[in-house]
Design a protein around this nucleic acid. Structure first.
Length: 362
DNA sequence: CACTCGTGGAT
DNA sequence: TATCCAAGAGT
């Protein structure tokens, strides 16, 4: 594979200067801004991230503000964005910067990877954009763009493939503005060299592309298929006291939706009929929480469905009553009045359950 | 290293 | 509805 690197860089740079997107985190090269945006953009679309990014910068203008933020305020600001461990790692890393690095950002990708939540991609992105390190930032766009350019058949789901791509990309990077090169790859991948139906006619790199020449671009990137989400049946219990407050449960610090608040959820080892669900709920509340629910009954209607990357939840909703003076010593959660329900970070599935409940009882 | 960890848009 | 997948990282 012989390629005129100078011509390639010129074509690519010219295209980027004309077509690059105007994004909030491109207003400067502040590592705090670049880092925050890169964490939010992990597995998340630009349009989704923008409002969260703007809100975060208003709430936490500096890395010191983020390091000092109350956890619930942080999680609340992240609510709905998904992959919530990113938010916890965000604050861990902010505290690393303030305490371990005395507020001075490390300037190399190698050092940046010591920060919580910063892996090889994010470290390379920050190092190249903020500190002009010549290192390829290899994300899904880069895998797609360069596998098609050079017909690279390494499986991108295999971590070992990263070095194959790095070796192919590095010789193409310019000494000046390597961060622009990496961002150009992302813009090209999201606007032109898309997964389905790439706009080949407007691709500034089309004359360098082996797969375009061979008509094989649909075969790239090579990626092993992901498994189907595992079906899980659950019951969700909408419990209210005599003043109408809801009993919300703080989920375990580990696992799915860690630390967030939902109606109490119980997983069934296998799908149960209504009678068995009722017995499960009463037994679990008695044995685990020492609580006796009153007036327990199915809400009725279709179950609430929610699909994660690896799980497919089917939730049958129930309703019950519990006095406000019930002893919650063994229950990880608290009463939440409808008026103050937005003080707690809740995942999307909780919003779905609440919406279904309110629609059914009204 | 295979698995875990969310959400919403596109098709 | 089913599937893919979007600027991945931690374990």
């Amino acid at each position: 594979m012989t390629i005129d690197v100078n011509a390639f860089q010129t074509d690519f740079r010219n295209w980027y200067q004309t077509h690059k997107r105007d994004l909030p985190w491109r207003r400067d090269q502040e590592p705090y801004h670049v880092w925050l945006s890169e964490i939010m953009l992990q597995q998340t679309r630009v349009d989704t991230v923008i409002p969260y990014y703007e809100k975060f910068l208003k709430l936490f203008p500096t890395v010191q503000d983020l390091a000092n933020a109350p956890e619930d305020q942080l999680m609340k600001a992240w609510e709905g964005l998904g992959y919530y461990s990113r938010a916890r790692n965000l604050q861990k890393a902010a505290r690393q910067i303030v305490q371990d690095y005395n507020g001075e950002w490390p300037t190399t990708a190698k050092e940046l990877q010591n920060l919580a939540g910063v892996g090889p991609y994010t470290a390379a992105a920050i190092a190249s954009i903020s500190f002009n390190e010549k290192i390829p930032a290899i994300d899904g766009n880069a895998f797609r763009v360069f596998s098609r350019l050079f017909e690279i058949k390494a499986d991108i789901a295999d971590p070992k493939s990263r070095q194959v791509f790095a070796a192919a990309i590095l010789p193409l990077m310019p000494d000046a503005a390597p961060g622009d090169f990496n961002q150009a790859v992302m813009d090209l991948g999201s606007m032109i060299a898309t997964p389905k139906e790439p706009d080949i006619a407007h691709d500034p790199l089309r004359k360098y592309s082996l797969s375009y020449a061979d008509g094989t671009w649909m075969d790239y990137p090579v990626k092993t298929k992901q498994k189907k989400p595992k079906p899980v049946s659950l019951v969700g219990i909408v419990i209210q006291n005599e003043s109408g407050a809801f009993l919300l449960q703080r989920r375990d610090h580990k696992g799915v939706l860690a630390d967030l608040f939902t109606f109490p959820l119980l997983a069934e080892t296998e799908p149960l009929d209504a009678a068995a669900q009722g017995r499960l709920i009463q037994a679990e509340f008695k044995e685990s929480y020492n609580l006796m629910l009153a007036d327990l009954k199915p809400l009725g209607g279709k179950p609430v469905r929610h699909t994660f990357t690896h799980l497919k939840w089917t939730i049958d909703l129930w309703t019950a009553q519990l006095p406000s003076d019930a002893d919650l010593s063994y229950f990880p959660g608290e009463w939440v009045a409808p008026s103050e329900s937005d003080r707690f970070p809740v995942p999307t599935v909780q919003k779905k359950m609440m919406k279904r409940y309110l629609a059914t009882v009204s």
